[in-house]
């Protein structure tokens, strides 16, 4: 009995109005309509969402962990991008 699986879909759920969709997990489904249906059954049984996105996993392009250094390390030593890097005289109450 050899079988293959339905395609894998990444599921994103918006918990309530005003916040972004957040990755919740994956489902298998033959098409986007059933992926939505399966995602609804799996991830929103307790009113966890008001909107769902499904995206075919094979359509996601991810950064390579091997590139993490060149991609993300240059940002680490640039503390001047943060307001806390600048000391102000006490007289300046709010800025």
């Amino acid at each position: 009995m050899s079988e293959s699986d339905w395609p894998l879909w990444e599921v994103f759920v918006r918990a309530k109005r005003g916040v972004s969709h957040v990755h919740a997990g994956t489902v298998h489904a033959p098409d986007s309509e059933l992926a939505l249906q399966n995602a609804r059954d799996l991830f929103t049984r307790r009113a966890e969402g008001v909107s769902i996105w499904v995206v075919r996993s094979s359509d996601v392009t991810a950064s390579d962990p091997a590139d993490a250094g060149s991609l993300f390390e240059p940002a680490i030593d640039k503390t001047f991008r943060h307001p806390s890097d600048f000391e102000l005289p006490d007289e300046v109450a709010h800025m």
């Binding site: 392009t61 390579d64 091997a66």
Partner: peptide
């Protein structure tokens, strides 16, 4: 830098050991 080296999503499995 191979941004396309991993075409797979975070969920499609192993790429290195």
């Amino acid at each position: 830098m191979g941004s396309s080296a991993i075409t797979a999503s975070a969920n499609t499995g192993p790429t290195a050991t």
